[in-house]
């Protein structure tokens, strides 16, 4: 579909829009609306149509030594889907990955988005420049809204230069030891850009223009580990360790809470983002007693995908629903449960 057809389809109210189907299938696809509109290496920015494959973007910018800072995971691995991830899909879920602990998620790379709202109007949020605080920040709201606010047409993102060197190392240590070590190392200038714990292994990535001296200093702190290659890292990024599991939840918490949280958990898990998140295979009842004040969990895969625990307060939910209604008064994008 081209831009005009998307607007017409929205106006005709013909249902939900999805990307290429890495997550689930929709009534019609915006994936054909693709292609790189402009790429300006000097500006570290790129503008692409929402249906553009992530792979196409990554290959293009890699030629100029640049990358997407949020290092998005490829959801097709845990969902066992053949479709290739698109940037529009990543925007819908606010994709993130191991570099989140330094560079944030997709919303942090987002400079602007142009989208069609539920009335078929084109809305421009943000722009193409690095800083913009003109009016309400609809860009941030749009990222991770699961397509409930509109159909993205094109997306402008900030890119990062790819660090010249990287070093990935793994340690065979219990989780408590890993978290203690990380707590110490993350407060030292070791340029750690990824820290994941999975299957009794603790993985740390360092990136810099010159990584040699940093490597030595990490070794002084944590001892000699096993060097890991990039292929393994991509598997970690995509949660391959949990991919066979029918249900996966993501728990949001603080690094200092991780060890205690996991004490009574038998399920397979991965500690992500330096301890700000845990991906747990299994159902909510397996871990919900461990959730303390301020922690919450969202279902990433399984029958109740998208569910959040604890649930939003009624007042909070009302704010979300009213906001969705502003963008989509006729509920074309299916954001709200309405009878």
């Amino acid at each position: 579909m081209n831009e005009k057809q998307i607007i017409e389809a929205v106006k005709a109210g013909s249902g939900r829009v999805f990307g290429s189907g890495t997550r689930r299938r929709g009534d019609w696809s915006a994936q054909e609306h693709n292609g790189i509109i402009s790429y300006l290496p000097d500006e570290l920015t790129i503008t692409v149509r929402a249906g553009t494959f992530m792979k196409e973007i990554e290959e293009k910018i890699a030629k100029h030594g640049q990358m997407l800072g949020f290092e998005p995971m490829d959801h097709s691995v845990i969902f066992k889907k053949k479709g290739m991830p698109t940037i529009g899909g990543a925007l819908g879920v606010d994709a993130d990955g191991p570099r989140r602990l330094r560079a944030g998620s997709m919303r942090d790379a987002l400079l602007g988005v142009r989208f069609v709202d539920g009335q078929g109007q084109i809305i421009r949020a943000g722009g193409k420049v690095m800083k913009n605080v003109t009016g309400l920040d609809i860009t941030r709201l749009f990222a991770g809204s699961f397509g409930t606010l509109g159909v993205a047409l094109d997306v402008t993102m900030k890119l990062l230069p790819k660090p010249r060197e990287q070093h990935i190392v793994s340690y065979n240590v219990p989780i408590a030891e890993a978290m203690d070590g990380l707590g110490k190392c993350m407060r030292m200038p070791l340029e750690i850009t990824g820290a994941i714990y999975a299957d009794d292994q603790f993985f740390i990535r360092q990136e810099a223009s010159v990584v040699g001296p940093l490597k030595t200093r990490l070794k002084n702190e944590l001892g000699k580990g096993e060097t890991i290659d990039d292929t393994k890292w991509v598997e970690l990024r995509d949660w391959k360790y949990l991919a066979q599991m029918p249900e996966i939840w993501r728990v949001y918490l603080r690094p200092s809470q991780v060890t205690k949280f996991l004490e009574n958990i038998e399920n397979p898990y991965m500690v992500l983002c330096g301890g700000s998140q845990i991906a747990i295979a299994g159902s909510l009842v397996d871990f919900q007693d461990q959730l303390r004040e301020g922690m919450f969990a969202r279902c990433e895969k399984g029958a109740v995908i998208g569910a959040r625990f604890p649930k939003f307060t009624n007042a909070h939910l009302k704010l979300i629903e009213h906001t969705q209604k502003v963008f989509d008064p006729l509920n074309i994008f299916g954001g709200r449960d309405e009878n």
Binding site: D137, R298, H316
Partner: peptide, 14 residues
């Protein structure tokens, strides 16, 4: 209200 960046609908962001 408490709004968190990972709520799944980013009211913190607005």
């Amino acid at each position: 209200h408490d709004f968190h960046v990972d709520d799944g609908f980013d009211l913190r962001g607005i």
